[in-house]
Design a protein around this nucleic acid. Structure first.
Lengths: 219, 219
DNA sequence: CCTTCTATGTATAACTA
DNA sequence: TTAGTTATACATAGAAG
């Protein structure tokens, strides 16, 4: 019954659109109520439905009307201020988008470095990496080392008589790169976040983030 | 971090109430947008914030007025076109940015999947390793770290002005990574469900539509 | 056209930096 | 304070009646 991901676009299917309108209008009005209750602020919402001469209004018309009177009375000069702010809106949004892109680029690089770590047995050489990638890799390896240390300490605490010194066993291989497969996850594994991380917010949410009152009404 | 069950009552704590107001107001306006986009109906919401002389209105306050007054349509559409042209540049840029973001998000997801694949293949966790394996691992990781250090020093000697701090990255070098050779089981169908989402144009078009010229130049 | 159901997406309370 | 995270509550798309 997998629910689709809701594409923000006009719903062409008639029945669906009407169903959605109804459900969401209810949800919207509920939210209006909650907001004005929780925060004790006057609030209202108005939705025109096709086929309905009068729009749905929430809360009761009279109160809504009172709320709306303020708008009518708002002087022009303030509207102009708002206009200016709204023009700046696009700018701000672009800045946000670019920031997001930058962050994502870093995230991508980091993931790539993690994979390099996994890959090393496949023969990748450090010589192929640029200085920046080396920096990232350094940190990752260091983190891994810390995780391993930590785990060793844990185990030692449980069994103080154990010894992890593998000198007698280990023969260093030609390749200096460790084989990471299977060394992650679970107990503080440094890679868990890769799996768990929530997908980045879409740009639309970003836009909403900009919809802060202070940007619009800075007087 | 358990989220409380939201008692539908006035929030007495000041900071909390303000935070909630802000969050929920954004959420509310987002819903208004979604509703009017999905179902193509005029809709608006108005929220008064304390400490603000004027209420928050969504969509643009003048548009809201129009909605409320059963606005008259025609002459405005032409002005809207003009408006859109004026904003055309910014809009196109934003579309580009959004596309880029979307592509990057897919890239990130793909990288994450590759790592997951590794984890699954390896199927072991740090916790699963015995003390000896941990010791071996420790040395391997440590050796790797040393190798990385060494390589960094080498590179620095060649180019003393280089900086390995990832934060300094601005433009990505040519993609140096070759991913996971041989790890894509046949067909690689596992990513098929990544649907090409239309770059969030809808919302901005909608926004522009709301930026009706008559609303902005009401003099 | 309604409900009702429920799996899944989204919003957001609480927390952290 | 504002921004970013995470876990959880809530909203709702799609299906079935």
């Amino acid at each position: 019954m997998a629910r689709k991901k809701v594409t923000l676009a006009w719903i062409s299917n008639d029945a669906k659109r009407r169903a959605t309108l109804k459900k969401r209008r209810n949800g919207l009005f509920k939210k209006v109520n909650e907001l004005s209750t929780l925060c004790d602020v006057p609030a209202c919402a108005i939705v025109y439905a096709p086929d309905e001469a009068q729009p749905e209004v929430w809360p009761m018309e009279p109160e809504a009307k009172r709320i709306l009177e303020h708008l009518k009375a708002m002087p022009e000069s303030e509207q102009r201020k708002k206009r200016v702010n709204q023009e700046g809106f696009a700018m701000q949004r672009m800045v946000k988008l670019e920031e997001q892109i930058f962050k994502q680029q870093r995230e991508i690089r980091e993931l790539e470095m993690k994979i390099v770590m996994h890959q090393c047995t496949a023969g990748r050489k450090l010589v192929d990496l640029g200085i920046e990638d080396l920096g990232i890799l350094e940190r990752l390896v260091d983190d891994t080392l810390k995780d391993v240390h930590e785990r060793i300490v844990q185990v030692r605490n449980l069994n103080p008589n154990l010894n992890s010194n593998p000198d007698a066993i280990i023969v260093r291989e030609e390749k200096p790169i460790m084989m990471m497969d299977g060394c992650h996850g679970g107990g503080g594994g440094y890679l868990d976040d890769v799996v768990m991380k929530k997908p980045c917010m879409g740009s639309y949410e970003n836009m909403l983030a900009l919809m802060d009152a202070s940007s619009f009404y800075p007087f």
